[in-house]
Design a protein around this nucleic acid. Structure first.
Lengths: 372, 372
DNA sequence: ACACGACAGTAAAACGTGTTAGGTAACTGT
DNA sequence: ACAGTTACCTAACACGTTTTACTGTCGTGT
């Protein structure tokens, strides 16, 4: 008796082995597992018993090859997983996407760049479609996806007509928060924004951040200021970078009286930094965020911020992706509204700055088209 | 010219198409992509050009079937994704796991139960191995994994010798936090714990929670109290459940003066509830958590809690899984230490309770074996 | 008695790759 | 000139499933 005989070939049992054990054909085994109506209950029981005996269950690899579906959705991430997961924004986004997964019985594959290359990541990922997070449209990954006809949905990009997309009204949100600070009387304002991805050929803002800057300029224009009158810093979107950038910004004289931060996570770091510098928030410096993470209510002081419906964004992206996978080839676009949440981290500056520039209110709620 | 001719068969291009276009065999195409030394650079270029022309890149389905690797790690989750992602604990855990993914160039597949069945989820997931989060060892999923010889690592279970595992010293951590409250003088203590999974046949605590209760009993014993002298509530691990359970607990008379919560997330809800009840923390009620999430420093008051190295736990679990996948079939077990972090949410009770029960300190640091 | 449908199960054709064993031609050294 | 090596490429198999088209058999209605 050889080792081969003992261990039945040593390899994983296959449907052929089960078929042999149960005295039927491979097709019968498949039917026993997938379509009970196609075999008699007696033989079905016999087949399943044999399968149990041999520790066999149909492996996904064969099924995937055969019918081309993986039962999992991919999420194409702009950074590696540790950096992404540091931002509670993504946890909320995945909650929304997860609702769709629960409904559809699918799993979720987080797909970060492999060795700095997202194209490689796309090539290796076995998923039914991708939700693409915060990437410029002109990047190679998206070309790769269209080239290979893999369904996808763009989130927080500047989507062309040809692909489904979910966005928020960044411009409107940023305009409102800037307007809020201007109304409070702030004039020396610094903006802490998110760094463009370094691997871009011509470093530009990612599109949502272009829109937000435009919104801030809208608000500034109403008091006769322009982008040149404010300080803008750009750092990676982490708490620590927010901390460090704030220290640098506050070294300037005269100090800004308000800090407009483009992500709550960075705003948390900013508040820490101001605290460590011995500056009071909002007494000495007002701070505003963007996102309205749950954590924004827990900070001390609680954070004034722009709420965006993150969970809904994830859910809608998932719904769009499912319908794209089903081949219902519409290309829906959804733009979600934001809301200014006023809390404790913003108040009028201690001493009015440049009172020579009067405040003129914005034109009321002029709709700002995202796509021209 | 038929439609078929026009669209070249309408189906995705395959390596055969590329081979035909470049005038070579399919093998040459495969080599051009995978092993450049096996074809001349000239023909390699020609093949890649043809592939680009036809929008061909080797699909993962074939490769996976052939060489049995998916380049992705699975995370077997005890609940659906929205519920899991509500707890920042998991974001941190995934950060650790993500470090391994970055190093190995793999992606991460979140695998929740499909229609309440984790066994189904395991069967459909195409991954190289699983990190199993917080499941009892005697559950069917784990049997399924061993049966099918799929590599896995148990996290926060009560692992048998035969499988790699990562745990924390739950008993020691819980003992220390209970000891802390007893030292402060608290005697009327309530414990807010995590509910056992409802689908268990005989509802018992999940193993880490058994260990934590044992730790609390260790501490209680030093002052002559036992589990019967304290209130224990068990609810699902969400913020909202923590909120509601706290309301219920505080309805009792006399009110507990200290609340030992088994998860920071629930503790946040508890603090909210106490605030809404008009009770001061820690003036009227002390609250302690477990985990030491980053958010624990942001609450008002900041949370006294048991720190566990969540990110390290994820990283080590990932490392163990990788080595299991590589077939280095050791079965390492790691138990990580915890630390009591004393912050502002705990202080002595307003009026000393039951001064008739004196305080006797714990035996110093007696090592507590996890496995007997 | 016969045609017909229902039923149970099977054979064979995809699905698309990676890789081993081998073959042909050109080239090299004596 | 010839044996041996090298460089390049191909044929064929293996991976394991699902599904379509088909075979045979049995019972049934007319």
């Amino acid at each position: 008796m050889t080792a081969k005989d003992t261990h039945a070939g040593r390899h994983r049992p296959t449907s052929r082995d089960v078929a042999a054990a149960a005295g039927v054909s491979r097709s019968a085994v498949s039917f026993a597992f997938n379509d009970p109506t196609r075999v008699s209950t007696a033989t079905r029981e016999r087949i399943l018993a044999a399968a149990r005996e041999l520790a066999y269950t149909p492996p996904p690899s064969g099924r995937t090859l055969r019918n081309g579906r993986t039962q999992s959705l991919g999420v194409l991430l702009p950074h590696d997983i540790p950096k992404v997961m540091e931002n509670p924004y993504y946890a909320r986004f995945l909650m929304g996407l997860g609702q769709v997964c629960t409904r559809e019985g699918m799993s979720l594959q987080l797909t970060p760049p492999v060795g700095d290359s997202l194209v490689k990541a796309v090539r290796h990922a076995a998923v039914d479609g991708f939700v693409v997070c915060g990437l410029d449209t002109d990047r190679g990954e998206i070309a790769e996806l269209t080239r290979r006809a893999i369904p996808y949905v763009l989130v927080d990009s500047d989507a062309p007509e040809g692909a489904p997309s979910v966005d928020i009204d960044d411009r409107d949100g940023a305009r409102h928060v800037a307007q809020h600070l201007l109304e409070l009387g702030h004039r020396r304002i610094a903006v802490l924004s998110v760094e463009p991805r370094s691997d871009r050929p011509a470093p530009t803002y990612r599109d949502p951040l272009v829109r937000r800057m435009a919104g801030i300029e809208d608000a500034l224009a109403t008091v006769g200021l322009s982008r040149r009158d404010i300080t803008v810093a750009e750092v990676p979107c982490t708490r620590m970078d927010g901390y460090r950038a704030t220290q640098a910004i506050m070294a300037a004289q005269p100090r800004p009286t308000a800090l407009v931060v483009m992500a709550d996570l960075m705003a948390f770091g900013a508040i820490d930094a101001l605290h460590d510098l011995g500056l009071d928030v909002p007494g000495d410096v007002s701070v505003t965020g963007f996102d309205d993470l749950p954590e924004a209510q827990w900070t001390r002081p609680r954070l004034t911020t722009v709420r965006q419906p993150i969970v809904a964004k994830g859910r809608i992206a998932g719904d769009f992706l499912i319908s794209a996978i089903r081949g219902e080839d519409q290309h829906p676009h959804q733009v979600l509204q934001t809301a200014l949440i006023t809390r404790e981290s913003s108040k009028p500056p201690a001493e009015p700055t440049t009172p020579d520039v009067p405040y003129r209110p914005l034109a009321p709620q002029s709709p700002v088209p995202i796509r021209t």
